[in-house]
Computed example of a mutant assay.
Amino acid sequence: MAAAAIFLLAALIILPVIQTRRMVSRALLSEGITNRRSLGAQQELNRISAQRPVDAYFRALEKERGEPNALEAKLFRAGFHQSSAPAVYTICRLGSVCVGFLASYALLSNLLPPQLPSFLAFAGSALLGLGCIVIPGIMLDRFENAQKQVYRRGFPDFMDMMITCADAGMSLEAAVERVGTELAGTHKWLGIQLSIMNLQLRAGKPLREALRELADRVGLEEARSLAVLFRQSEELGTSLTEALRVYSDEMRSQRILRAEEQANALPVKIMIPLGLCIFPVVMMVVMLPVIIRMKGIFF
């Protein structure tokens, strides 16, 4: 199993990384850039690394056109855009089952009395090992939530820059392209998603569909509300700049309310470490002199 795991690691992760570096080196040499640490080489490397998730998304889109795969979409939302991400995720689930089974079997075989049959330790280890299959799913959910927080932090800047571009008289397609270029340096992942949206608009997809797919990729309620806002503004013929400004103020108010909610929940969360760590020490400091004095009086 260890040899198989090492072989899969080398075949799915290490070998593609080496091949990618070789391709980047050849591309730099073909463009006349000999020093990989120069400013031009670093810019080219950043462009290639930013283009890789975009290519991965469109490859997944072509593959999932007939049969959508929820796992690859979830992995893409979590930030794992490599083509080998589903295979690595499956291997991690199998590895967690094997590790959980071996660890629980070693623990139960030492804790259980020798009078009990060994089948009980094996059955308990199998159940615990099967329970460990949910650990990669939990970690994937945590990665997805962390990626959503990254998108949520960059979304107000996206709204402000869209308002600025709309006030300057730019069209929505040109505004999305300009904002995506500007956000690529400060908010990398949001800039990548906007680049995907810009390519979809260039391919002829309507703006409402591109915004809806952007909301599905990032998984934010703010993006879904923005897609609905664009659709309503297009159908009703209202001013898009005013609608964006009102929505930006509302979104900032929601961020303030969310921060206040987290701050108000902090005293309740801090009661657990307070009760487990500080309260016993305080009780010991208060009651120890009383116990010593009572011992001297009654005993």
Score class of each variant (00 low, 15 high):
17 V>N: 11
178 R>F: 13
160 D>N: 08
86 P>V: 00
84 S>N: 07
198 N>F: 08
238 T>L: 08
74 K>P: 00
98 C>R: 13
229 L>W: 05
297 I>Y: 15
217 R>L: 03
145 N>G: 13
266 L>H: 05
154 G>D: 02
289 P>G: 00
197 M>S: 02
18 I>E: 02
139 M>G: 00
101 F>N: 05
172 L>N: 00
7 F>W: 11
212 R>P: 09
18 I>V: 13
187 H>E: 03
203 A>F: 07
91 I>G: 09
123 A>S: 09
88 V>I: 13
30 S>V: 05
291 I>C: 10
68 P>F: 04
81 H>L: 02
181 T>P: 05
210 A>G: 07
157 D>K: 13
116 L>H: 08
238 T>M: 11
281 V>W: 04
209 E>M: 11
221 E>T: 09
7 F>L: 09
113 P>C: 05
44 E>A: 12
136 P>W: 03
216 D>N: 10
195 S>Y: 00
20 T>F: 15
110 N>A: 12
14 I>G: 03
97 V>M: 15
209 E>N: 07
102 L>H: 04
76 F>T: 09
271 M>C: 14
52 R>N: 09
130 L>C: 12
193 Q>T: 11
240 L>K: 12
42 Q>L: 12
105 Y>W: 12
70 A>V: 10
69 N>K: 05
180 G>C: 07
285 V>P: 07
289 P>C: 07
18 I>G: 06
280 P>D: 01
227 A>V: 05
114 P>D: 14
12 L>T: 02
174 A>G: 14
35 N>T: 02
64 E>P: 00
214 L>K: 06
103 A>V: 10
215 A>T: 02
244 L>R: 06
94 L>C: 12
214 L>G: 01
49 S>E: 05
182 E>R: 14
241 T>D: 02
206 P>S: 03
101 F>T: 02
35 N>H: 03
65 R>G: 00
91 I>R: 06
106 A>E: 04
261 E>L: 11
250 E>W: 04
292 I>K: 14
